[in-house]
Design a protein around this nucleic acid. Structure first.
Lengths: 219, 219
DNA sequence: GCTCAATGATTGAACGTTCATTCAAGCACA
DNA sequence: TGTGCTTGAATGAACGTTCAATCATTGAGC
C-alpha cells in the first residue's frame, strides 16, 4: 500500500461491489487533494472534477468547504485503526517494537515519494488550526487517538520500562518524533533527519530498557 | 520580546532613525501575515494594506507573491543569529544548557498566545514545500542553519557526551522535538505535549551524560 | 547656487481569472 | 404525485497582477 485511500475502506456491511456513492467519492477526492496540495490551495472546483460531481451535489451533502474538511478529519479518526494501527499490530506483538513499526510504516509510506505530501493530519494542523476554530478539535482528536495507541503499547511493556517513567509523556514524544522528523524530511527531500530522530528515540528506549532491567535485578 | 519583528532588525549601519523604507515595511507585514495566517490564506491586498503601500510599489520590488515569500525566508536566515541564537547563547555558556534554552525560548515566545501561530518556518515547510520548488531549498536552508548551531553546541560539549554519539543526528532530533512538540501544542492549545517532549529529551540527555561520565572514569 | 532633464519609486484604477457558493429546473425512484 | 438527489449556469467577491501617469530625488551644466 502506498498512500491510504479513504474510499477503499468504507464501513459498509455487508461489503458491496457497487461503485462508491457520491459522498464517498467526494470525501476521497477531498482527502487526497487536501493531502497533496493543502486545504487553501485546493479549489472546490478541483474536488468536483476529481470526484465527478456537480457543485449542487456537494453542497447538498456538505454545507461548506469547511464542513467538508471536518468530515474528512472525522473519517481520518474512524480509519485510524483499520488503516494505521491494525497493520502495525499485526507486524509484531512486542509492544515496544510496535512503536518502531509505526514509525517505520510512515517511512515506508512516504519515502517512495521522497517525502512529498507529509502527514495529512500534521499538514492540516499547521494550516488551519488557528483560522478554523471548529476544525482544531478534530485535529486534536486525531492526535489523541494516535497517542492513545502508543501509550497503550508502552503500558503493555510493563516493567520492561522504568517504573517512574511517564508513559503519557513518552507517547507524546513518539508522535513528536514522527511529525518533527517528517517535517524535516519533507524540507530536505531526504530521509536523513527522520531516520536520525527515530534512531535517537531508539537509543533512548535502549537506555530506558537497560535502566529498568538493572532496576529489576538489583532493586 | 514576544514574536520576532523583522523590521526592527534591519541591517542598516550606522543605525538610522528614519522610518523603515518600503521594502522593509512590505517584508515585515508579509512575514507577520504569513506567520499569522499562512501563505495561501494571506492576500496580497492585505499585505499592501498593512504595509501602507500600493500594488505598484510592491511589484516594483518583488516580481511576484512567490518572490516575496522567498525574500521573507532569506530574511529569516539572516536573522537567525541576532534574533534566535544570540539571546540563547547569552543566557548560558554551558553548551548543553543552550540546547534547552533554545527550546525554552520557543516556549516563552508562543505559550503566551496559547501556542497559536507556531514556528514560522515549520508552517511554511508544510504548506509550500511541495508546491513551490524554488521555495523548498530556502526552508531547508533555514533548518540547516538551526541544526548547525545545535550541532556546534553538542560538539562543544566534548566528552561530556559519549564518544560514539552521532552529534549530527542528535542535533536533528532537537529540531524534531521543537517542531513536533510545537505542532501538537498548537493542535491542543496546550503546552503539555511540548513540555513532555522536551522533558523526554532532557531525560535522554541525562542518560547520555551519565553514560559518558561512567565511560570516562572507568574506560 | 540655480535650473532642468533623467531616473527610479509610487500611485491606484483596472484587468482577467478563480474563488466558494447558490438555486431554479430536472431527474429517478417511491 | 411526492421526495430527495442531481444538474450546471450564474453569482458576487477576492485573487494576483499590470501599467500609464505622476511623483520625488539626483547630478550635470552653467
Amino acid at each position: 500500500m502506498n498512500v491510504q485511500s479513504l474510499s477503499d475502506h468504507s464501513m459498509a456491511f455487508p461489503p458491496t461491489n457497487q461503485p462508491p456513492d457520491t459522498r464517498s467519492r467526494i470525501l476521497d477526492a477531498a482527502a487526497r487533494l487536501f493531502h497533496e496540495q493543502g486545504f487553501n490551495a485546493t479549489g472546490v472546483s478541483t474536488i468536483l472534477r476529481e470526484a465527478g460531481v456537480n457543485p449542487g451535489s456537494l453542497y447538498n451533502l456538505f454545507p461548506s468547504k469547511d464542513a467538508l474538511l471536518a468530515a474528512v478529519l472525522e473519517r481520518y479518526t474512524e480509519l485510524l485503526h483499520p488503516i494505521v494501527m491494525e497493520p502495525v499490530e499485526k507486524k509484531t506483538s512486542d509492544p515496544i517494537e510496535r512503536v518502531f513499526a509505526l514509525l517505520q510504516q510512515y517511512r515506508e509510506w512516504y519515502s517512495p515519494l521522497e517525502f512529498r505530501l507529509g502527514c495529512p493530519i500534521g499538514n492540516l494542523a499547521l494550516e488551519v488550526a488557528d483560522s478554523h476554530p471548529e476544525i482544531r478539535p478534530l485535529i486534536q482528536q486525531n492526535f489523541d487517538g494516535w497517542s492513545a495507541y502508543v501509550r497503550k503499547w508502552l503500558d503493555d511493556a510493563g516493567d520492561r520500562l522504568p517504573r517512574d517513567l511517564d508513559r503519557k509523556q513518552l507517547a507524546a514524544t513518539v508522535l513528536t518524533v514522527m511529525e518533527g522528523g517528517l517535517m524535516q524530511a519533507r524540507s530536505s527531500r531526504s530521509a536523513a533527519a527522520y531516520d536520525a530522530s527515530v534512531g535517537q528515540l531508539r537509543a533512548y528506549f535502549d537506555l530506558l530498557l537497560a535502566r529498568a532491567s538493572a532496576g529489576r535485578t538489583q532493586p
